[in-house]
Computed example of a mutant assay.
Amino acid sequence: MPCRRFLTLFMAVAILPLAACGHGKQKKVAGMAPSRVTTIGINAYIWRAALETFSFMPLIQTDANGGVIITDWYVNPASPNERMRVAVAIFGDDLRADALRVSASRQILREGVWVDDPVDASTIQKLEDVVLTRARDLRRTAMSGE
């Protein structure tokens, strides 16, 4: 029992400072949701949008504090001879295009062996645009109070 009390006390003391993170750092313009959300160390709108965008792919790693999302290989049932995996990095707490980097790897199945195939830069740009558009939509929804 003393060990349980110690653990409970330790957890309370360890978590208490985190409760204050982000308070007082943002100015809210009347009628506007903040574009900077700092409670997890990165922009929460971009984080949520990235998770939603790549939710159909199996996730290997997610780290909200570091702003990293890594997926496992995904094979589209409509294209079983091709697979992709994605890595997302979110930098900073502002909702800005330069706060997001998406990289993707693609492989083609040739004679029973997966072979690396380049991913077009335009595909990467489209993926980033999808995430950023969704993040802006999430912010807009927060502004309207829905």
Rank of each mutant, 00 (worst) to 15 (best):
T71Y: 04
T8S: 11
R140K: 14
V115N: 08
E111K: 11
L59V: 15
T62R: 13
D94R: 12
S144E: 15
A99H: 02
E128P: 03
D117S: 14
D117H: 11
L18R: 07
A64P: 07
R5M: 05
K28M: 13
L9D: 10
Q61S: 11
G24C: 05
T141R: 15
M57P: 05
L7C: 06
R4H: 09
E128V: 01
K25L: 12
A78K: 14
G112I: 03
V13P: 00
R139Q: 15
G31P: 04
C21R: 06
I124Q: 10
S79T: 15
E128F: 01
R5L: 10
A142V: 10
T8L: 15
E82A: 03
L59C: 12
D63W: 07
L51I: 12
W114V: 06
A14I: 02
T71W: 02
R5S: 11
N76Q: 12
A14K: 06
S55M: 04
S105N: 13
R110P: 08
D137Y: 12
A33M: 04
T39R: 12
R106V: 06
P2R: 14
R136N: 15
V75F: 00
L127F: 04
R106S: 09
V113E: 09
R83D: 04
D137Q: 15
G92H: 09
R83N: 07
F10E: 04
S103L: 02
R136S: 12
N81T: 14
G24H: 05
M11N: 01
L132P: 05
F6M: 12
V88P: 00
A50W: 02
I42A: 00
R134C: 02
V75H: 06
F10C: 10
W47H: 11
R83G: 03
D137C: 02
L51E: 15
A104D: 06
V86S: 00
E111L: 01
F10G: 01
F10N: 03
V86I: 14
H23N: 08
V75Y: 00
G112N: 02
F56H: 14
A49R: 03
L7I: 13
N43F: 10
S35A: 09
D117W: 03
L100Y: 08
A89M: 05
Q107D: 02
T39N: 05
A12V: 11
